[in-house]
Design a binder for these strands. Sequence first.
DNA 1: CGGAATGTTGATATGCCTCAACTAAAGTGG
DNA 2: CCACTTTAGTTGAGGCATATCAACATTCCG
Lengths: 245, 245
Amino acid sequence: MPRVHEILVRKLREHSRLSAEDIAEIRAFSYSVRTLLPNEDFIRQGDVPEVCAVVVSGVVARYHLRRNGGRQYLSFHMAGDMPDAQALFLDRMDHAVSAIGQATVAAIPHSEVERAFEQRPSVGFAIWRETLIDAAIFREAITNNSARSITVRMAHFFCEIFYRARATNLVVGDTFEFPISLRQLGETLGFAIASINRSLQELRNMRVLEFRNGQIQIKNWSKLKEFGEFDPAYLHLRKPPIAAK
Amino acid sequence: MPRVHEILVRKLREHSRLSAEDIAEIRAFSYSVRTLLPNEDFIRQGDVPEVCAVVVSGVVARYHLRRNGGRQYLSFHMAGDMPDAQALFLDRMDHAVSAIGQATVAAIPHSEVERAFEQRPSVGFAIWRETLIDAAIFREAITNNSARSITVRMAHFFCEIFYRARATNLVVGDTFEFPISLRQLGETLGFAIASINRSLQELRNMRVLEFRNGQIQIKNWSKLKEFGEFDPAYLHLRKPPIAAK
DNA sequence: CGGAATGTTGATATGCCTCAACTAAAGTGG
DNA sequence: CCACTTTAGTTGAGGCATATCAACATTCCG
């Protein structure tokens, strides 16, 4: 049985202070766990969710469905993240959420989260802060996808994913499991698959990063973050994780 | 003296229901008004604001400052918007805010807003919803700037601005005052000035839109929104404004 | 009234896309 | 468990959308 409450508390503490009472309130959440197959949608554009998801393991992604049937990936989420927290206040989903690789999510009824807001406003503020950091991540994606050339953009993207994974203690050695396909990378960064492929090879040749078989392996963090123009200030973490070697 | 409380209430009601008590709480806010010159910054990246801005008139923009000194504009805000509401929970600003053309903003002390959250959680929820809609707008900008060609992208951008302006009753006839420069348009959409110029001419030749002297004039709304792939669902408004003719 | 910022246009350069052909890996039914 | 199909990844050649650069026109502003 996954320790959903602990995973959520741990995550919220990356950016927010929680009192013992706050934590008690969170521990009172009931939830049901769902296992997702690779690429399985669990929220579709237009849905009106009545539960709130917390990622338990694996990676989930948010994306816009385009008129031509293509996708634009918007963000990626890992253990502790609440990828549809917005549905607590915005009825209709304006984007979809799906698993990248296998993943498990816990679903907490909105009613319980709302009750927690009443009992302990500071729990609400922590979740509000979580959604504000999401917004900061979206802003950074605007800049990344609008103003940087392909290989720099890719480097920045992997910096963010790796840094966040590390903050949540999901990095083993210098490697993080991130089973995204080249197609999906293209639909994230706004490039064609062929270009993504060549750019990945460039990063490998620079000896800063390898991406193979759904694993990100960092070879030279300081060179990578320099090249990718990565500054983690926008992630608003209370304590930056120890930088990768 | 601008009627700041009314402007804010009106805006929040575009997406949220407010009770008489909620409105009374908002009316209790004290504030100071500041007039901004064109292109004047009022928040810089790294600032730790102690007041919360509400746009009273004109347009303000949020932007990232890039390493090379360039800017990436992230979003534009008009009467009633709270462009730095995030600072209520995130200490350091990860982006700057400046005026586009002349503008006026009201500054409300964080302490007063926080008190309102205590007295009337639903006021907090309305402002939370406001920040969630901001996030939805950022997501749409990711898709716009990553997946659409220059002229479609520009059309979508003007659709959003015009639609939001109309929802807030800022459109006079078929025209909205939006004194942005071509350079800034380029730094918003991720294109060079020369290309922006040519794309603007294309929209004019299509007879869907004119942009001249800082005024957006809509010539053919239904054709424009079709061409720009614009669907306002992501703005999460309770009542869509009457569509432009 | 002079200088700077902004907008306009044309010519050339280039980064990424498209398409196509191929390889490798993964899933599927006999 | 193998043959088959499908999906994912790789590579090269050529094309095109947008960048860059330069010259000039215009408007703004001190």
